[in-house]
């Protein structure tokens, strides 16, 4: 059996570039990405390689995967692994980037933002309402809304952080690439 190890991720939504650069560095030392793991990546020991990694987000329907992967492979991007809508590819340095224009790169972030902001739209009002209830009411409702508040906070904080991070990345893309 091949030697494997786990490395942590900063969260692809927050630090995609840093994560992918870390993977390249590891590959140079012979630790090649094998699969996505919970909050990180699983690497496998092999021959060192000089490659860059890229990530794309796309929920592929039945019969779409073959065409999607074929396009990447024809463009020189080897498919490494996927998990639900996350797909990671690798290619030698100098290969055309998987996103060559700003508009479709922004589309990628929008696809990422959609489910997150949907959760946000549900969880933020819940957090606020339970906060008001626990401050202005007493008795069992106060206790109940306290619990709801704590639970919704657990979801609200990372959701908000993700929305902000993605919005900033979107802004950066449109500022640096259009003139």
């Amino acid at each position: 059996m091949k030697k494997t190890k786990y490395i942590m991720s900063w969260g692809l939504a927050f630090a995609e570039k840093q994560d992918l650069e870390k993977l390249s560095k590891k590959a140079k030392q012979g630790w090649r990405l094998k699969s996505l793991a919970f909050a990180g990546f699983r690497l496998e020991k092999g021959a060192p390689e000089h490659v860059q990694y890229s990530v794309d987000y796309r929920l592929l329907k039945e019969g779409e995967k073959e065409e999607y992967l074929e396009l990447f492979s024809q463009a020189g991007w080897e498919h490494v692994c996927s998990s639900y809508d996350i797909h990671i590819f690798k290619a030698p340095y100098g290969t055309t980037p998987i996103y060559s224009d700003t508009e479709s790169a922004v589309d990628k972030l929008d696809r990422l933002l959609k489910p997150v902001s949907l959760i946000g739209k549900f969880i933020l009002p819940l957090t606020m309402i339970s906060y008001l209830l626990m401050n202005f009411l007493t008795g069992p409702i106060e206790q109940f809304s306290k619990i709801i508040f704590l639970i919704s906070m657990v979801f609200a904080v990372p959701t908000l952080m993700m929305v902000v991070a993605l919005m900033l990345r979107k802004k950066k893309l449109t500022i640096t690439k259009s003139y």
Binding site: S54, D56, F72, A75, T96, S100, D101, A105, K108
Partner: peptide, 23 residues
């Protein structure tokens, strides 16, 4: 499509696979 664009523009305009699929 990728090939035609690359050949016609002599490689000065290239479209990445993710952009192409999105479009």
């Amino acid at each position: 499509i990728m090939n035609l664009i690359e050949d016609t523009t002599k490689g000065s305009f290239v479209i990445g696979p993710a952009s192409l699929y999105t479009i």
